[in-house]
Design a protein around this nucleic acid. Structure first.
Lengths: 354, 354
DNA sequence: CTGAAAGCGCTAACAT
DNA sequence: ATGTTAGCGCTTTCAG
């Protein structure tokens, strides 16, 4: 039962908000005094401070944030854009990786005193120039992303995961693609794999480009065949089809004995695909997925995943941006986030030593 | 190659931003004229207008959004909070429903000229009172949610999906729970189900409370047994266990012949659970999931889903909020969004007429 | 057709 | 210890 209940209902005109002057007048004090009292600054007698506070409370005073921001010279607002894909403006949130990256970015920002504004993927600065953003975080830019150029040209501090190395004002965070590939392939090899096949999206994101390079290098170094299938589109449909392509070997040909999928795909669906093609996991096929999808824990067998650690990426990114924003750091800095392999039954050769 | 390349690099002091006065001075005009020229307002000679624009461009002038907002009296910013759960501050993004609701809210807002600020779930107004939000959207409040009370008390226009009926200033949107349950159960009954079992979260969200009521009513009306299992926690693990509970009937007892899951769960995992308990889908068990999870399309068989239409919910919500914000509408308005049943093979009795 | 000046609501020097 | 005043950067009457 709020104040506006029953017959007494406020008349239509949107109640003019109580301003600092109003409180000051009412309390018989000056703006300064009330402001100081409310902000805990200055030296005021406890009595006056209390009177100001009480009056403000009674009148339902709430400071105007915009005015404060104008005064302060910043709005404590950080923009968040995902690079590339201007075709999929918002769907990135539906991928577990981005869902967690986004949440973690918002969480870390808030800890540092900034709120996050969601921006549509791949849009340029011009489309939201009327927002008072102190800085912008660009997640997952593709090579030569216009978003970044745009922001840099506008002089807005930018942090971008993946590398924008060397651009002044553009700190970066990068997932350690090379380490990720090496760790996953080493693990598969230890488990006996000799014909691992890689499934990777065919896009210009720095991470994926590096993954391919690392894979090539690893295969050469270990004298194993370089088996890879590229996925043109993202999404479960295309990725699962790519997995099928990878597993569907011609009659009599040697079959792959391990699968490393570096594209967001539903773990249970990948397992199902493997079964459809007559593989037993992990007996005939070891499976490792680069994924943040929690369902990996609940499949039978549970699926080994390689986490890109979105929380760590977000944290490092916000940290860099805040460093620029608050201490005016100019020299670009960077962080390389190591991935984490969560070994589960899908990639552990069974019937050995157990 | 931006201007700051090479040896010429700007010295450290963060470049003082170009202001309107600076442009005016440089162009030999007044602030007024330049402002008018840039905003396309007022009656200026084309020559002057062009001169002002050119100078602004040359100097890299970008208007200060905060100052504009102060002047305009609003920041064109909408807050977005998810109700309840202060334990899971950000994880809501990982659910397909909320991922899409969030994206759609941001998209619709932008179309109406507002940007969306992500707020941690279940937090109160006091924790982000230093943000200049014109309004707030509260998604999925639980009964008697403090977030709502808090906002209403503060006089901030609130829209909330699910109902907050009767509160002045609090328009609402509600998913048609009753229709959803009826549509799903009618469908299952038409397909021959006589012992459908409902799996539903045990939480006070209005939607879920209504689902239970509707289920009870439907069972009574059709003279079918009221079978239901409640899930204490959310997440794939608990939901799958609840599904197992629902399917794991004592030896000799009658088994359920249809499953209606009204909790976000991974479609392939639910299918897998059914198989583990010896059910063939759809032959022994018809399955309908309330879910926005895209994997439902790719399972074998594809799973029938009941969509809560997050895009429609978001659209209606933003529409209501903007109506309050821009036309000062006071009388609370509401929208009831119908759900959509996407019938796929998992709920169609096979071997009949085909 | 253009410019001077007021003021959005707040905070912080600078008096008193 | 408290009040006066300037000013953050912009838009917009209102004179000229």
């Amino acid at each position: 039962m709020t104040e506006a209940s029953g017959h007494e209902g406020q008349p239509s005109p949107p109640t003019p908000r109580v301003r600092l002057v109003d409180v000051a007048r009412e309390a018989g004090l000056s703006k300064t005094t009330v402001s100081a009292a409310l902000n805990g600054t200055g030296r005021l007698s406890p009595a006056v401070r209390e009177r100001a506070r009480e009056t403000a409370r009674r009148m339902g005073y709430r400071p105007n944030a915009t005015a404060r921001h104008l005064r302060a010279g910043r709005a404590r607002l950080i923009g968040y854009v995902v690079g590339g894909a201007p075709d999929a403006l918002w769907t990135y949130l539906e991928s577990p990786y981005f869902a967690r990256l986004t949440g973690a970015t918002a969480a870390t920002s808030l800890l540092r005193g900034y709120a996050v504004v969601l921006l549509p993927a791949g849009t340029l600065q011009g489309e939201w120039s009327d927002l008072s953003l102190d800085g912008v975080i660009v997640a997952d830019p593709v090579a030569g992303d216009t978003v970044i150029e745009d922001l840099l040209a506008a002089g807005i501090p930018v942090f971008s995961d993946r590398s924008v190395e060397g651009r002044p004002g553009a700190s970066w965070v990068d997932v350690d693609a090379e380490g990720a590939v090496r760790e996953a392939l080493d693990h598969l090899r230890e488990q006996g794999a000799r014909r691992p096949v890689l499934v990777v999206p065919d896009i210009a994101t720095r991470f994926h480009v590096e993954v391919e390079a690392a894979h090539r290098a690893w295969c050469a170094a270990h004298g194993l065949p370089e088996l890879a299938v590229r996925v043109a589109e993202s999404g479960n449909g295309p990725v699962v089809r790519a997995v099928e392509t990878a597993l569907d070997t011609p009659e009599g040909a040697e079959r792959p004995d391990a699968l490393l999928v570096v594209a967001e795909a539903s773990p249970p669906l990948v397992l199902e695909a493997a079964r459809r093609y007559g593989y037993e996991v992990p007996d005939d096929l070891l499976v490792v997925l680069v994924s943040e999808d929690a369902t990996a824990l609940y499949t039978d067998p549970p699926v080994t995943t390689l986490s890109l650690r979105p929380e760590a990426v977000a944290e490092a990114g916000v940290e860099h941006l805040v460093a620029v924003l608050e201490h005016g750091r100019r020299e670009p800095a960077g962080t390389l986030v190591p991935t984490r392999l969560d070994v589960r039954a899908s990639s552990v050769r069974s019937g050995r030593g157990e």
